[in-house]
Design a protein around this nucleic acid. Structure first.
Length: 269
DNA sequence: CAATCAAAGCGTCACCTCCT
DNA sequence: AGGAGGTGACGCTTTGATTG
């Protein structure tokens, strides 16, 4: 599954300022793949599990928040107490108490609980000599999530170059490999670490440095937001799956209790 | 087939927590 | 203390379904 391309005003606005060319050493698909998306339709792929199981809606913190009219202040207070999805998922990854007779558990059928481990995102900037010579930088984004099913093993390499005017040239996801969008400062993808030995002492360069830092922060945050959303989806699916499992267990226990009651009554009579 | 709508996704900002 | 990463909120676009 690939991301939608050319999407988002910030991205495309940057591109409207001109077209340039950059050296790219990876196929476009490596940039487009969004790690973890293979698992997103997992629930839908197993509709049978959900046809007979009533999903109990549990009020989540989100719902509590959305129904809270006391304003953002209180919302913030509640959110501040909320652990990250990584923590929540780690907690959830502890196994659901197994029942002796749990053969029809939906969890055992699809094993969704196995994907609750959170991934980590590593950003590494490379400024090796050959690339620096042509102003080309490489940003390696490694997603260690076990759910990332992309063929690149969860590693995405983004390359970009800085022009003499301080602008950054990046490949456009989804575009032909030969065509690239120019990213104006302040609009996109600054993730650049200066090539070693770059003269960066003048005030102009200082502001460029600030601009670069901002772009790098935006780039990382963009990736972090994607990762966060992916984890959130996994988290929700995990909760749904857990609900299904517990519903099954509950049903089995009720039946068991019923049977034992009957047995007991017969014995009494 | 065009208009409309809801859902989903994205980028960015602000704020929080954690780590060094 | 400050930087880095995580995440909710917000505004926007895209997409698919529905309707007239």
């Amino acid at each position: 599954m690939s991301e939608r391309n050319g999407h988002g005003t910030a991205d495309t606005n940057g591109g409207s300022q001109g077209i340039s060319v950059v050296h790219v050493s990876i196929p476009n698909s490596a940039i487009q793949v969004q790690p973890g998306f293979q698992t997103q339709s997992a629930v839908l792929q197993n509709p049978g599990n959900y046809q007979t199981i009533q999903i109990v809606r549990v009020a989540t913190v989100d719902e509590e928040l959305s129904s809270d009219d006391s304003g953002t202040k209180k919302r913030r207070e509640i959110l501040a107490r909320r652990p990250s999805y990584r923590k929540i998922l780690n907690d959830l990854s502890s196994p659901v108490p197994k029942m002796e007779d749990d053969s029809n558990s939906s969890q055992s059928n699809d094993g969704h609980d196995s994907y609750v481990q959170a991934g980590t995102l590593h950003l590494t900037a490379h400024g090796d000599a050959s690339h620096a010579a042509q102003g080309l930088q490489t940003l390696t984004m490694t997603n260690a999530s076990p759910t990332s099913g992309n063929s690149a093993g969860g590693t995405t390499i983004v390359q970009y170059a800085q022009g003499p005017d301080g602008q950054f040239y990046i490949p456009v996801a989804g575009a032909n490999v030969q065509a690239y969008q120019i990213a104006a400062p302040g609009s996109l993808a600054q993730g650049v670490v200066m090539a070693p030995g770059s003269p960066m002492s003048s005030p102009q360069h200082v502001s460029e440095e600030g601009s670069r830092k901002r772009e790098l922060r935006l780039l990382k945050n963009r990736e972090a937001a994607r990762e966060c959303r992916r984890k959130k989806k996994e988290y929700v699916k995990c909760l749904e799956n857990r609900v299904a499992v517990l519903e099954n267990q509950n049903k089995t226990l009720i039946e068991e209790l019923k049977a034992l009651k009957e047995l007991y009554c017969q014995k009494d009579a």
